[in-house]
């Protein structure tokens, strides 16, 4: 039986996907702004963060309305709980993309460091994790969600590797320190985005299987 509720759920799902698409775009453009030393693009990403904040408010409002009027149960309840937990993760990822752009603008005011190989790789991995976390949500694919979670270790390792390379630059020449620290921050931002993607995936497993796997060693 088609329920009025299904239409509301579908609407929220579509809003989530639009927000997810916007967040992915922010990530992609923050990386491009960083790599191409494009201050205008970085500023553009920063300005657009407001739209994502607005989107979060809209989704929150609709989800709370749904709880008040429909009193969801079982998979409906898990869906609503998942939305309430996933939306802030997405919003946080967008904030981190904004942070990347702020550091990129600062870097552009300083001489360019010779590029380190791990950072683009790190960004690429984080992006893929976010994209696949969203895919796993859309498809209700707990297997995909679990595979994304497992990949978080790779990102952690890349973050550590990029930090070591940057540390070498700092030791080589103290004039590199300011830029190298900013790049270390950026590495950390991508690592955090991957963590947010992991959190999303944990909720997808809850949505599909009803199992709360966060903070459990046997994911």
């Amino acid at each position: 039986m088609q329920r009025h509720f299904d239409r509301d759920i579908e609407e929220i799902k579509q809003l989530m996907l639009r927000m997810g698409g916007m967040v992915e775009q922010q990530m992609i453009e923050s990386v491009r702004a960083l790599m191409d030393r494009d201050t205008d693009l970085a500023q553009h990403v920063i300005d657009r963060d407001r739209d994502i904040d607005q989107m979060e408010l809209t989704i929150d409002q609709k989800t709370i309305e749904l709880m008040a009027t429909m009193q969801p149960a079982a998979s409906d309840l898990r869906f609503v709980a998942t939305i309430m937990k996933i939306t802030p993760e997405l919003e946080r990822i967008a904030d981190l993309a904004q942070d990347v752009c702020e550091r990129a603008i600062e870097l552009n005011r300083e001489p360019q460091l010779k590029p380190i190989s791990q950072l683009p790789l790190l960004a690429e991995n984080a992006q893929r994790m976010v994209r696949e976390a969203l895919d796993s949500f859309v498809r209700g694919d707990a297997e995909l969600a679990r595979s994304v979670i497992r990949r978080d270790d790779v990102v952690d390792q890349l973050t550590e590797d990029s930090f070591r390379s940057l540390l070498t630059y700092m030791l080589e020449n103290p004039r590199n320190i300011a830029s190298a620290i900013r790049l270390t921050f950026i590495g950390k931002y991508f690592e955090r985005m991957a963590d947010n993607a992991t959190n999303i995936c944990e909720m997808v497993v809850y949505l599909v299987e009803g199992k709360m796997i966060k903070h459990s060693p046997m994911q």
């Binding site: 039986m1 329920r3 509720f5 969801p72 149960a73 079982a74 998979s75 409906d76």
Partner: peptide, 11 residues
């Protein structure tokens, strides 16, 4: 069947 009933998807 329980899922369908408690979510009102029944029928």
């Amino acid at each position: 069947m329980t899922e369908d009933y408690v979510t009102g998807r029944f029928g």
